[in-house]
Structures are given as structure tokens and as C-alpha cells.
Design a protein around this nucleic acid. Sequence first.
DNA 1: GTGACACTTTACGTTAACGTAAACTTCATT
DNA 2: AATGAAGTTTACGTTAACGTAAAGTGTCAC
Lengths: 134, 134
Amino acid sequence: MISKTYSISELAAEFDVTTRSIRFYEDQGLLHPSRRGQTRIYSSKDRVRLKLILRGKRLGFSLAETRELFDLWDDSLSGSEKQLNLLLKTIDGKRAELEQQLKDIAMVQLELDNAEARCREALKELEQKKMTAE
Amino acid sequence: MISKTYSISELAAEFDVTTRSIRFYEDQGLLHPSRRGQTRIYSSKDRVRLKLILRGKRLGFSLAETRELFDLWDDSLSGSEKQLNLLLKTIDGKRAELEQQLKDIAMVQLELDNAEARCREALKELEQKKMTAE
DNA sequence: GTGACACTTTACGTTAACGTAAACTTCATT
DNA sequence: AATGAAGTTTACGTTAACGTAAAGTGTCAC
């Protein structure tokens, strides 16, 4: 069974990024597509990686951070004990980051609720004034 | 009652940022400390704002985005109906962003769990090999 | 009155993450 | 054979968010 492949513009269209960005991610060592001649060919694994890169970006990860995670993961496959333990440490670190982000999000959500409430109050008062002015 | 004030270096120390950054935030219109002579004096409101800026950063907000939020909020105080409705729209937009981030975080957490499990499996196997080698 | 700090402004430098333009090559179509 | 679409490399440009150095001001301790 031959698994599906993608062209650079297919991926660009699917994830709404430019081909420039995709090539840049390769340049930074985040992607390693194969080639037919000089044309890049992306596998489903490459596609998953791209998805992970973009997800990381939405969470404020730098490309360098994401790259480190990829590298650690790849290293762990041919894993020496040292590499594996380093990976575990890093995983814990990332988990802590995510926990902090969850807290931050919760706070911001509360603030948004608060802001919306005040906002609706203000709108109500404006309506009142309209009524009494008539 | 006179409310508490802070020097720039106090804030810098408390939140572990440089004074350069704090001045930069002011330059970008995110902070408006009062002055005694040419020395900046920060109120508790300024302190809260700084906290919000940093929280925004941890969530990947740009300074420009955070600034927009501040501006909208300030405008809403002297709120015309237009301003208030714009603010409500923006609030909804931010909420959507946060929802997406929550999803992203959940996904990454799953991946971390997965990665850790595989990692521990690999370590177990290494232990096995050690045992049989003895 | 003189260090010694803490603060200030001004301004040039730096890094990350691309944008954008120029000048090819390859391949399918007309 | 020519055109056009999609791909490529090379390289300079740009923006955000500061870093860093230079040079000056204010004020407290001695």
C-alpha cells in the first residue's frame, strides 16, 4: 500500500499558510520532506508535523521550541536511557507550561465575563436615557 | 487615603521583567504612569495593567492586541453605543480564540500523555535487556 | 561637594518569522 | 515551439519586542 502524499501547495491551501512558511519550517529543521527531483513531496507524517507546528504557534510556542520537541521525540526512538529521561523531563516542563496557560485562560475568561456584564449594563443605561428623553 | 505606588524597578523585580520592557510598554501606549519630575510613578492600576500584559504574552497575544483591548475598555467608560457594541464584538472574538486554545491545549496534553507512556515503555525494555545481560 | 545609585532619554543593534522580488527549471497543454 | 502553471533557489526587506550602550539628571549619604 502506498500512502498518500501531498504537494507543498496542497498543504499550504489546507492549513492556510504560505508555501514560503512551509519551506521556512524545513529550513529550520522542522520538516524533512522527500524529493522527486527537486520537488518536495510531503507524507502524511509530514502533514501531521505541520499540524503540530501550527498548533504550537497558536499556543505561543516558538519554532525553536517545537523543533526541540520533535528532536527529542525522534531521538527517543533510538533511545538511550539518557535521551529517554531527558525527554521525560521536558515533557514535565511542557505540562507545567500548559497548566499555567490554563490558569491564564481561566482568568482572562473571567475578565471577559466581567467586561461583558459591565458593557451590557452601560448599554441598558443608555436605553433608559433614550426613554426619558422621549 | 493615599493608595500605594511603585517605582519602575520595584515592578520590574516583582514581575521579573526589565525596566526597558516596562518603558517599552509605555512607549507602545499600554501604560500611562504619572510622573514626579521626570521619574515614573506607577499606581496599583498600572500594576494590574502590567500583570495583564504579561498574562497576555503567556497566551501569545501581541502587545498591539493587548493594547487594543485596553483601548476598547477605556473607550467603553465614556461609552457611546457604537463603542460598546464594538467592545462586545471584540469580547466574543477573544472568547473564540480562548476556546481554540483550550482545544489545542487538550490535544497537546493527550500527546504528552502518549509520549510519556511510550517513553516509559522504552525504558522498561531497556531494563529487561539489562537483566538478561547479567 | 562628591560619590554612588536610581532614574531618565536617545538611538542603534538584534532575533524570529516570515514577505517579497528575481531569476531559474519542469512539466503539461495548446 | 510556445505558453502557462507550479515548483525551485537566492537574497534582500520587514515587523515586533525588546537588548544594550551612551550620556545626562536628581538626590541621598557621607
